[in-house]
């Protein structure tokens, strides 16, 4: 007789997770994270003083993990609406690959780890800004604004706009007008970017009960507001050159990119009511990604060229 009897458990409640490391990585919203990393890196390079390269890597890594953690918390809270939207139904939680509780713990642990790492190894101002960003995205945007008001992505956009300020603060230990302008560019870019998406995905948002602008104020009003934001965004994009932070090269690129943004927004504004394919809205959505990448790449290139010239002239 065996000393210990074995009992096989078939109960679903005891089912072991089949989530792979890739599923957990998907919880971090890698595409959003790549944008955060890039804009934070530009803020870090644009700062007038230098930082040890290893600490710069630590800062970028912590910012990336913090952004990913807020993405995981967002997916944990929004699992119910993600399940009914075509764009998000295959995410790890609605598809059943990761349990909601696992995603919550994952997000909380990474949030604490990223903020503490940034604070201990870099500085506490950047850590405080990262903590605020995670809180703002996970709690203020995801839990409150997103299901309550069509201004959700206008106000919530602040969370996605802070990374260059964190990058700047990681190097300098303060926040300056130059970094605030980088914040403003992303902040003003967010509404037309997401409303272009909301125009051609309005049925998805309707089904999920999310009060996006086209579902609440109508398509015509949304198109007018997209154009209004484009009118404000285009000159703000040129502001770093106007204020003397960059060279005329950046100014020229930002002017061209801003003109393009206005053109694509105009095409959305005059889009026929019966155009259900909404090609102008899809084109604007694609162009807006190119715009943001282009503006920040031009800013980065300008900073690098300035440094190289300064070294050459020294």
């Amino acid at each position: 007789m065996a000393l210990v009897e074995e009992t096989r458990i078939e109960d679903a409640a005891f089912r072991m997770s089949e989530a792979t490391a890739g599923d957990y990585f998907a919880l971090l919203k890698p595409r959003v994270m790549s944008l955060v990393v890039f804009t934070a890196f530009v803020g870090l390079v644009a700062a007038p003083v230098s930082i040890n390269p290893m600490l710069a890597v630590v800062a970028i890594l912590a910012i990336a993990i913090g952004a990913g953690a807020s993405g995981a918390l967002n997916m944990w809270y929004d699992a119910d609406i993600d399940a009914v939207m075509t764009r998000t139904a295959t995410r790890p939680i609605p598809s059943g690959r990761v349990a909601p509780g696992e995603a919550l713990v994952f997000g909380l642990v990474l949030s604490a780890l990223s903020v503490m790492t940034l604070g201990v190894l870099v500085n506490w101002l950047s850590a405080a800004l990262l903590a605020f960003t995670i809180f703002f995205y996970a709690v203020v945007y995801t839990m409150w604004l997103k299901r309550w008001t069509p201004q959700n992505i206008v106000i919530g956009g602040a969370a996605g706009a802070i990374p260059p300020v964190i990058g700047w603060a990681a190097v300098t230990g303060n926040v300056s007008l130059e970094s605030v302008i980088l914040f403003l560019i992303i902040f003003l870019w967010t509404p037309p970017h997401f409303w272009a998406l909301a125009l051609f995905k309005s049925q998805d948002y309707e089904r999920a009960g999310i009060p996006m602008m086209p579902n609440v104020a109508g398509e015509a009003s949304t198109r007018r507001q997209i154009f209004a934001y484009a009118v404000i965004l285009a000159p703000v994009g040129v502001l770093p050159w106007v204020l003397g932070y960059t060279s005329v090269g950046y100014g020229a690129v930002a002017t061209l990119l801003g003109a393009g943004f206005l053109w694509y927004s105009w095409k959305v504004l005059v889009m026929p009511q019966d155009d259900r394919a909404m090609r102008p809205a899809k084109a604007l959505f694609g162009y807006s990604l190119l715009y943001l990448f282009g503006i920040f790449a031009a800013y980065l290139a300008d900073c690098v060229v300035e440094r190289v010239l300064a070294i050459g002239g020294a």
């Binding site: 009897e5 009992t7 096989r8 458990i9 005891f14 072991m16 997770s17 089949e18």
Partner: peptide, 23 residues
């Protein structure tokens, strides 16, 4: 109290656990 309750992992669960452990 003498019973040892065991969970029999499927192949995909073992593979997923290995992937998580490595990560």
């Amino acid at each position: 109290d003498d019973k040892l309750e065991m969970i029999e992992l499927t192949e995909s669960q073992k593979k997923a656990r290995r992937s998580r452990s490595i990560a």
